[in-house]
Design a binder for these strands. Sequence first.
DNA 1: CGGCAGGATTAGATCGTTCAAAGTTTCTGG
DNA 2: CCAGAAACTTTGAACGATCTAATCCTGCCG
Lengths: 329, 329
Amino acid sequence: MAEKVTIATVARRAQVSRQTVSNVLNAPHIVREETRRRVEEAIAALGYRANQAARQMRTGRSRLIAVRIEPTRDGINGSVLDRFLHGLTETADAAGYRVLLYTARDDDQEIGTYDDLLGAYDLDAFVLTGTKHGDPRTAWLAEREVPFVTFGRPWDALDGHPWVDVDGAAGTAQVTRHLLDTGHRRIAFLGWPTGSGVGDDRCAGWRTTMTAAGLDVAGLRRETEDGIAEGERELRDLLARDAPPTAVVCASDSLALGALQAARGAAAPVAVVGFDDTPVAAAVGLSSVSQPLAAAAARCVDLLTGLLDGQPTDPHVLLTPALVLRHTA
Amino acid sequence: MAEKVTIATVARRAQVSRQTVSNVLNAPHIVREETRRRVEEAIAALGYRANQAARQMRTGRSRLIAVRIEPTRDGINGSVLDRFLHGLTETADAAGYRVLLYTARDDDQEIGTYDDLLGAYDLDAFVLTGTKHGDPRTAWLAEREVPFVTFGRPWDALDGHPWVDVDGAAGTAQVTRHLLDTGHRRIAFLGWPTGSGVGDDRCAGWRTTMTAAGLDVAGLRRETEDGIAEGERELRDLLARDAPPTAVVCASDSLALGALQAARGAAAPVAVVGFDDTPVAAAVGLSSVSQPLAAAAARCVDLLTGLLDGQPTDPHVLLTPALVLRHTA
DNA sequence: CGGCAGGATTAGATCGTTCAAAGTTTCTGG
DNA sequence: CCAGAAACTTTGAACGATCTAATCCTGCCG
């Protein structure tokens, strides 16, 4: 095996000093054109790669971003995190960062892990998903001035940290408008119990659009836990009443899938639209609201690199989802 | 902010030398009981954490394992990788390793990434998922003696690298036996086109069990691409023939979900069993074969740590999946 | 009581990079 | 042609751990 290629090897070959090689890598503009070319040739010829550990030891920065991976929750929404992670890894890569995973059972353990990762690996930043009211994690990180971004708005107004989110209300509003445009008037909403930021947001888009169109939403909203069986039960129940809805907007694909089964047995056709555009939706032809996960991941990385390089970036990004029309609406 | 805690800080506080502290961490048995206790107290009191970068620079080992994250494929099987990753991260953590993600569009790019990761980050090992016939990646890694494990058997007999896999044949055999026990005789198999190692394996379990029970499998096997629509089409077709099957074993939950829809409209009830036990299966009450993903991930880590520490471990692990019975069989 | 084996501990060098500061060359204008 | 500035390059130290080799104990045997 060939001997290790270090910055000194490159320097010797290019007839310059170590520091000049380092400058070519980290501050190319201060090196004379011709010298730089010579060094770059040597780097290519030797296949030199800067040793990350040595660099990290000197600079205290690891070019590593940590993300928590959660066990797939019940329901069919697991693939959302999957796609987000993929996007994150890809964008981070392009920006010269890598993604490190960690797990945690609860908030306390997660905070312990932050401490570990920061102490041992000099982690540069964290990406948090699924923030909730009064999240202790963001407080801990903010207090120590650790750069981080959340995917998901902080639902407490006082939290001023950077975040990226998808505008759920805009998504359901778009769905509702589409249904109105295609002639529907009695449009129901199948969502989660009030109190979750995400769920309330998605409901709001439907409610405001309906109200703006001069329609009454009374009796058209159902709240239930997430799940296929739950969705089926609720829509079946709605359809059994007087003046049943002709269309239903759902807060998730799981609910929508259930609704679809209930709709199948209905007297009149019922349009169904889901949320998240999971693979199942694509498979069964369910129309759904698609979150721009790759874009969201990219913006997370943008925000982080901005923070890390001290560039001022707008720290709040709200992305608009897209409605994917298939057979069911 | 408090000054950084290094091994020297600990040494001073415990009234010993740096090396003794290092020994307490890396070779506790050579340190005298009482000294060790004193050092451990100092470590705890100061909240010392060994700097990974410095250790890595000296030892050339990063305690980092790389895993490729793939974009979610079509179909509902995305959560499989998700769960595997979660298990991997958790077990690796317990063994003192962390998981690093990378992406790649094709094999060449992936090999380029290996080079990068090894050169810059001193990666300790790789976990590959989804190997195929004549995989260039395993060859590249083996040639350079980089430790790695694949999740999935190599389907070329000549590849001798360590692997962990789930015995698909055992899974479908178990399903078939269960169906036989509950009185079924005409049991169909809905699978993928011949040629994929995984698919052929799953088919074999059904076929041998049927044959062993003295039953004829002629006309009971269907091959199709993965997908819900495909599953529905094939079972509908099977049910339309003379002597239709009373039960069907599927190579995936996607196919099973489709089959379930076809079965719903059938004259006689048809038992359906899927494969992978995805969250959708749980949601709709579909019986399915559950891969022990957490265990598989754990065994991957075991194999890798074994390789890294030079301990001889049996390098081929075949795990048996479990049949999860729900409403559909 | 001296010598010696062997374990426990220490001191110094080292990994590959970047920082700080000093050194050298090149350019500009009087 | 030279002083002074600007641009570029070099040198030595430092980051925080581990490795090697040397030193210090301690107990045991002759």
